[in-house]
Design a protein around this nucleic acid. Structure first.
Lengths: 344, 344
DNA sequence: TTGAAAGCGCTAACAG
DNA sequence: CTGTTAGCGCTTTCAA
């Protein structure tokens, strides 16, 4: 005698059980008893019936009727990347607090997929969208902003006056990191960059140049290598740079994955850190302190990134207007450990 | 002249534009033209109208009507934990391939929150649910299974004949790790356990005992400490064990977070790894190989965990029946590096 | 080959 | 204080 796929209880059944009309039942259960001056007897009987039948209203039907889905959409380049995962978490928690649910999708670092996912999410009538753009295309995003759908961009933004964006202060971070290297006496510094032409990468490059300029030291762009934020790119770029320019004394990796690759390449080339090579990386990591050479790094406040984004989205939904500030910069923090050696 | 929140185009408008009825429009666009023998002229005019108006059907309305939401729900104890994030990713990708969307939620390692989130998801008429249970309560899960809603448990399962579960082979992994320690001459081995009474923890403990029994060596349960899978627990447990039983020569951490804590505690107590203390951990990590003492570990195939779970869910949805096998065990892999020293 | 109409489950305007 | 009715946007009988 196994109970099979019993259809969920509907409001209609609750109303019938309580001996009232559909609308009364609806009102009693959605806290509008007061407003409609429903007798407390009636209200109670409806509530009791609902409890007895284990009624759970169909959010689907409610959404269709009210045109409010209480749904957010998120598009991330890679959910498994701890950086994006941390962002997703803060958003999910903020959503839960506000009785929203979150559709999380993975664009696999692919712009076309991103466009497709955004469409998919729109078809589900989401009330707000947060995307960490891959960074290649952006018309689909400006279009959404134009349609007044609350939208927040995180990490990789665009310079567009109607796009609300929250990113780390990449420029200041890179400037500080480079300054540290320069002050430690390094002059030939290899840059392991990430995905070119994305905002974080571009701004970090700017920061690097600024630091050089500030000290009146010439910067050689030939010392930039790499094309992604992943381990492979770091490995290849470090290998290339270290072979072609053995005079390099320090490496600045634009992500901890890049740093990992650099570590591997340096190991293979027999260069010990920090003795034979200094290393600094963007993105801190719990393990960074326990590495053979505890890694000095620029720490992004990832949780803050997510939290601010979620709040900006919630704000837009509540007020129906864009926030005053469009570009939000979250400060970064230099974590000085032992992977940099003073020279010269 | 800024375009304001223009309401989305409905099928009705498309039908009107194409000069056909609502039903014809619906049929033409949902690939049922053949079945209904709609003239290709009509079909084309509908498609053209839809394209011109940029029509995107409301999945909400479609879901309500068809009673199929194409929605999955996921509940994770902590989205930001790379382990769960990796699982989430595989599920999301599988979902995307099958035109499903995924509602991802975070229970914050809290059973009551988990119960609440599951209810919330059910109210959204999800077609399938994957949960990594906190592990304390389970009635809400057996109830769901009884209602025949496709459900898959990942990582922390329960021994229940109707619950489809996929976990790593914790027992074999712990057995192998312990065996390695024993064969390296260690006899006094401290166990840094995770959350007690969860399936992974319990099974790992069983594996440890089995390894001891196999070699006819007595195991002292007093050498077990810890109460969580996090860094703090590892730190405290390691500190306690190492102080109370200085004769300990090796530590087996039940998670990489626990291992991190152990690393910190060992450092503070002046015990170098591997010279003064051997260490092995459950859960591999990209950085593990680059630690001061490259960490030997038991590697779970997390992607596989997620992928198998997603497939099992998809299978249930398609067939409408539970899979033959209820308990799925994913093999683990021993990554031997340099954190264990041979002694005795 | 196409259209009219019912209805998924809910909310809200209108009517007592 | 409560009920009747319309309708959110779509799919799918039933009818022609």
């Amino acid at each position: 005698m196994s109970k099979s796929t019993s259809k969920p209880i509907t409001l209609k059944q609750v109303a019938a059980a309580a001996g009232v009309s559909l609308s009364t039942a609806s009102r009693a259960l959605s806290g509008k008893a007061e407003a409609y001056r429903i007798s407390s007897t009636t209200e109670k009987s409806v509530r009791d019936a609902a409890k007895k039948l284990q009624f759970s209203p169909s959010l689907l039907a409610r959404s269709l009727r009210s045109q409010r889905t209480k749904l957010w959409g998120i598009v991330l380049p890679n959910i498994a990347n701890p950086f994006f995962a941390a962002i997703a978490r803060e958003i999910a928690l903020t959503a839960e607090e506000n009785a929203f649910s979150v559709l999380i999708t993975d664009s696999q670092e692919n712009s076309e997929t991103e466009v497709h996912l955004v469409e998919q999410l729109l078809a589900r009538q989401i009330e707000g969208l947060i995307v960490c753009p891959v960074g290649i295309r952006n018309q689909h995003l400006t279009k959404i902003a134009k349609q007044k759908l609350p939208l927040v961009l995180v990490d990789r933004g665009f310079d567009h006056k109607d796009l609300v964006t929250v990113t780390s202060d990449h420029r200041a971070g890179a400037r500080a990191a480079t300054k540290l290297l320069l002050e430690s006496g390094h002059r030939t510094i290899g840059i392991l960059q990430g995905l070119p032409d994305t905002l974080p990468n571009t701004e970090r490059l700017v920061g690097v140049r600024e630091a050089f300029a500030l000290q009146n030291i010439a910067f050689d762009p030939a010392l930039i290598a790499g094309n992604h934020f992943d381990e492979t790119s770091g490995y290849q770029a470090a290998g290339k740079l270290l072979s072609e320019y053995p005079e390099i004394t320090a490496l600045f990796a634009f992500s901890n994955q890049n740093a990992l690759g650099a570590l591997r390449a340096a190991g293979e080339l027999g260069r010990k850190i920090p003795d034979d090579l200094s290393l600094i990386a963007f993105d801190d990591h719990p393990f960074a302190a326990y590495l053979a050479a505890p890694l000095t790094s620029v720490n992004q406040d990832v949780s803050q990134l997510g939290r601010v984004a979620a709040r900006l989205l919630m704000g837009q939904i509540k007020t129906g207007a864009l926030p005053e500030e469009r570009q939000h910069r979250i400060p970064v923090q230099l974590m000085i450990r032992a992977s940099i050696m003073k020279i010269g």
